[in-house]
């Protein structure tokens, strides 16, 4: 599903340049649930943003679902993001003036789905994350866990190939974190490929594979026995 080879990325700050990713080789098969671990500043988010086409690598190749991702202009990148990817952010990134339902429906708007169908679909995803009763609420009327569920429903709405989650539980207490991880596991159980960036070992333990990042390189990549979040609740 994802295949990256010899990926490099540095940030230029004035005359200095900070080499963040120093040759990443990495692939993810369909249906995997992978966590990317590492200390703060190790380049996890940078890697995920490149995978999400929110940022571009300096060097190396990236293939997503058989499509070579290179020389993207904003227009094509937007189209690919919409078609292939769903994002889950630490800070939720819901649009504050849209209610839960309209937030979930937004990716469908950019897919050109008509309003009626959009609302139906969005509603079914809200049901899936258990928030059907909260459809009409604005984000600031929801708890952190609920917001992240709405964000997950939104990420799912466009039926993407891959879900990219950057510290999805970073802003949540542990009980809510496990709820969210439980949802992520359930979604993975249905066969969806998911990448989760985290620096918390217990969250990483709930995935099926842990990739350890240090100083811009992968130092460890192991399959693990998944801990079901359900057991911790």
């Amino acid at each position: 599903m994802i295949e990256i080879k010899d990926l490099h990325k540095s940030y230029k700050m004035g005359s200095n340049s900070l080499h963040v990713l120093k040759g990443i080789n990495f692939s993810v098969a369909e249906g995997e649930l992978v966590s990317i671990m590492g200390s703060s500043g190790s380049g996890k988010s940078t890697l995920l943003n490149i995978l999400g086409m929110l940022d571009e690598a300096d060097e190396g190749s990236y293939t997503l679902d058989g499509v070579a991702i290179k020389n993207l202009n904003e227009k094509i990148a937007a189209r690919y993001r919409n078609k292939f990817l769903g994002f889950i952010f630490q800070s939720f990134n819901l649009i504050s003036y849209k209610n839960a339902l309209d937030n979930v429906a937004l990716p469908l708007y950019y897919q050109g789905v008509k309003r009626g169908e959009r609302i139906d679909k969005a509603m079914s995803y809200l049901e899936k994350v258990g928030l059907a009763d909260w459809a009409g609420h604005l984000p600031n009327e929801l708890s952190g866990g609920q917001k992240q569920r709405v964000a997950i429903a939104r990420a799912l709405a466009s039926d993407p190939k891959v879900l990219l989650a950057d510290e999805p539980t970073g802003a949540l207490d542990s009980k809510t974190s496990y709820d969210v991880m439980n949802l992520i596991q359930e979604i993975n159980d249905e066969g969806r490929t998911i990448l989760v960036v985290t620096h918390e070992p217990d969250i990483a333990a709930m995935t099926k594979r842990i990739v350890n990042l240090k100083d811009g390189r992968i130092i460890q990549d192991t399959q693990v026995n998944q801990v079901r979040a359900q057991q911790n609740v």
């Binding site: 227009k75 937007a78 990134n93 649009i95 990716p107 950019y110 939104r154």
Partner: peptide
């Protein structure tokens, strides 16, 4: 700006 970033992440093209 942030909203525009979110929209772009969700697939909004520059023209849109």
């Amino acid at each position: 700006t942030r909203e525009i970033g979110i929209r772009k992440a969700l697939g909004a093209e520059p023209l849109s």
